[in-house]
Each structure stands twice: as C-alpha cells, then as structure tokens.
Write a protein that binds this DNA or RNA. Structure first.
Length: 420
RNA sequence: GUGGGUGUAGUUCAAUGGCAGAGCACCGGAUUGUGGUUCCGGGCGUUGGGGGUUCGAGUCCCCUCACCCACCCCA
C-alpha cells in the first residue's frame, strides 16, 4: 500500500521552499513597518465560531468546512478563514484593554473542502491583516495600502484594486429592498438559484454568471446610491486617503464579499491572467463581527490573501524570487587521513556562517570536483596529502580557476577570502 | 456538488491491439590530485490503481484515484 497525499494538498519541496520563505519574510517585514504584530491562532476552532461569523447560508459553512468530532463529542472545524479566529482571540484575551487599536497580522494554513483547481486548494496558505478597534477611514486606507504595497513591491504589474462600500445594516436593508423591487418583475426570467436569492440574499443576484441574469442585473440599482449620509462620508474618506497614497483603484459596485460579516468598505485585488481563480486577496470592514461572537461592539477591518495564487501570478509575470542558495565552498577531501584531519576545520568554517558542502559518498578527486561544480559552489576547498603535510588548504575559484594556499593556523584569512 | 480534458522513466514526450523507447537530467568511467565541453557505459518503469474483452492491452470497455479547464464559490 502506497500512501498518497490528500486531494487538494501539496508538498513544498526544497526547490520551492525558499520562495515561500522569501514571501513570508517580505510580508512580515512590511507589516512590522506599519506597526502590526503577528498573531497565531489554532488551526481548528469550535465549529460554531465559523457558523455564526461567516453566516449559516454562506458556502464556506454550507459545504466547505472540514468538521470533526473529538473523543468527547465536541464539534470542531479546521479553520476555513482567519478573521473569525483572530476576533475570537481578541475577545477572549481581552485585547480591548490598553491600546485602543490592535494591529495584527497572521500567516498560516486555511482549510476548505472544495473542488481543487488551479489556484484553489483544500489546504492553502493565507496572509492577512486585522486592525481592531477603530472605524477611522484612515485605517481602511492603511490596511488596503499594506496589501497593495506588498503585492506591487514584489514587482507585480498586472494588479487591479477594486473597492466598494456595502454600507451599514441600515442602508443595506434599504438596498436589499430596492433590489427586490427591481428584480421581482423579472422573476420568471431568472435562473433557479437567483429565484431563491431574491428573497434570501438579493445582493448575490448581482454576482450571478448566467447570461440572462447578468443582463437583468446590469440595470439593477447600485448600492452606492443607497448609502446613508455617514456611510457616504466614510467611503469618500477612504478614497481620499487612497488617492493621497497614490494607490490606483476602481470602484466596483459589484463586489459582494462572500461572508456575512462585512460592512462598509469591501475590496479585492485581482491579478491579470490567472484564469478563473484570479482573486489574489480580498477584505473589508467588519464592524459587526466582534459583537456577533460575544464581544463588545468593536469596529475592525482586515484582508486575507492567498500565497498559492500569488506564486502563480509571479510566475505568470516572469518574476523571480531568487535561486536556491548555492554553497560558498565545496570541500574536496582526498584520502581518509585528510578527511579526518579536515573535519574540525569544516565545522569551524560552518560555525563562522560559511556555507560549506562536502560529499562523503564521493571519494575520487574528479567526482568531488564535479559535485562542487554541479552544486555551483563558488570555491573548492582542496585538502589532500600535500596540504595535510603543509597544514594548509588550497582555495580554488571555480569560475576563474585561480588557486591559492591558505594556512590552517589562521582560519579568518580563509573565511575572509571565501566571503569575498 | 455539475460538465469536459489528461494520466507512460526524475522530467519533456514517443510507441497502426503484437518485444515499452528517445531527448534532457542523474550516476560511473576515459591510467588513480583539477570540474564545466566531448566520448563511452548505466533504465525490468507496479504505462496512476482495480477489474473486463482478447491468443495478446500503454492502446478497447467499465470502475476508481489524481491533476488540469469551466461552472459554483472564493484565497
């Protein structure tokens, strides 16, 4: 019986892992510069947390959650998204005490039982930001800007930021009503899904891909026209701040985030040529969420992005994240006596932070030199009978072919030469 | 969950129902202390898995698994 990796998952092999490390590091660095600190929550939570926060009718809860029961019958779920756990941690750890605003970021795997496709996996890595404790539109723009600068900073050109406001519960109620009034006369022309949506979640009608529905929806009232005074002011302020930051955006009134907890600002960054799964990241304001899960009413905003799609987009645009690091030097040790004698120096160099490779499985000079070339080492460190007798080592530059002897008395000189 | 496509060596791909092959990569060697080029040598791989038809299946049929594309949805 050979075991196989679960569907929709993947191994990150050594040839790839440095790319992930690079992306993680870039994101952490940027987040830190904006004053955000990392938070890490469990990969599973009480299933109810997600059911309540995302909404019972959301696809995530209806069909995509990995639910399981533990030995005592408690019902848990592998986290399908990162915001609800962070909100839970905020409430549970009384993070509302002290500084008014908490700036948090996370990196970690999420899980959704969905049919895999390019850019869509059952376990996928997300990066995300959550800012809890303020509804100042300045922060909406700040959070969006972190996402924007992260992605554009990697060199991506083919990016589009789309923003919208879904308003507060007040204006979305008015809007839903307007939508229902608009669509009801067209009822018989709508697809079966939309006929249900019209009562349950009229805003989803705007998202329908069925051509006939699309055509009807094209004339539907626009949410932005139904914003109340406060929401309008808020949305205008977000735009102003984005303009001050010189971040290009377009207003897309059709952005309807999939999870129920969003209010006011909603946004999405889409990548150019990714095929159907082209959403690189999405987020928005969720002023109602914390209260919904048992905390005080607290405004918050955040986003989440997927690393897999980011990697796809980078590849698509031909952007390299660098190469697997090559050894600084490759030790070529000829004969057992030389090999034994050089072992302490091998360690000493490594402890100085120099990347020195050695292959004990190869014995002949030629094979070892070939290996050094193969690994693209900059230098070969040759140590055989002659060097053993002279208590020195031969440093060979593998590009120029130049060779020079270095005494083993003073390893610093050698180290310096290798470092260049 | 629905529809379609594809699965052969590490990889990219061949093989009218008739002996499973090639390029690249990889390993070894070309008188034993000088690599990259060149030359020589090295491949029985559960043809994704299981069943069926057939004298004979990588090839035809069924099931299954995985990936890809689209839908749904989203990261």
């Amino acid at each position: 019986m050979r075991y196989k990796i679960p569907r929709g998952t993947y191994d990150i092999l050594p040839q790839q892992s440095y790319k992930w490390q690079k992306l993680f590091a870039d994101f952490r660095k940027l987040a830190a510069a904006y004053g955000y600190a990392e938070i890490s929550t469990p990969m599973f939570e009480q299933a109810g947390l997600f059911e309540r926060s995302s909404g019972e009718s959301s696809d995530v809860v209806k069909k995509e959650m990995y639910r399981f029961t533990d030995q005592k019958g408690r019902v848990f779920a592998l986290r399908p998204e990162g915001t609800a756990p962070v909100a839970r941690a905020y409430v549970e750890n009384r993070m509302d005490i002290g500084a008014a605003v908490k700036k948090l970021y996370y990196i970690g795997p999420m899980f959704r039982y969905d049919r895999p496709q390019a850019g869509r996996y059952r376990q996928f890595q997300q990066y995300g930001i959550e800012l809890i404790g303020s509804d100042n539109p300045f922060y909406d723009a700040e959070v969006i800007s972190i996402l924007w600068f992260f992605l554009s900073g990697l060199g991506l050109k083919n990016l589009r930021l789309e923003i919208n406001s879904v308003g507060c519960p007040n204006c979305s109620q008015a809007y839903d009503k307007a939508l229902q009034e608009y669509f009801r006369p067209h009822f018989s022309d709508l697809c079966p899904d939309c006929q249900v949506r019209i009562e349950q979640n009229p805003r989803r009608l705007l998202d329908c891909k069925v051509p006939s529905c699309k055509e009807i929806a094209s004339g539907a009232p626009v949410q932005l026209d139904y914003l109340d005074e406060d929401c309008r002011i808020q949305f205008a302020a977000v735009q102003k701040h984005l303009e001050l930051m010189e971040i290009p955006f377009t207003i897309n009134p059709r952005i309807v985030r999939g999870l129920d907890y969003y209010t006011h600002t909603a946004f999405e960054v889409v990548g150019g040529s990714l095929g159907a799964q082209n959403s690189l990241a999405g987020g928005g304001r969720y002023n109602g969420l914390l209260e919904q899960i048992g905390g005080k009413s607290t405004p918050a905003i955040g986003f989440a992005g997927g690393f897999e799609r980011l990697l796809l987009a980078l590849e698509e645009e031909g952007i390299s994240l660098g190469d697997v690091p090559a050894p600084d030097a490759f030790a070529i040790l000829i004969g057992e006596a030389a090999r034994d004698a050089f072992t302490p120096y091998l360690n000493a160099l490594r402890l100085k932070g120099i990347f020195v490779e050695f292959d004990p499985d190869k014995s002949s000079f030629k094979a070892q030199l070939k290996a050094a070339d193969n690994r693209q080492a900059r230098f070969a460190l040759i140590f055989g009978e002659d060097e053993l007798a002279a208590n020195s080592v031969t440093l060979r530059d593998l590009q120029s072919g130049e060779q020079k002897n270095y005494s083993l008395e003073n390893l610093d000189l050698l180290a310096e030469a290798i470092r260049g």
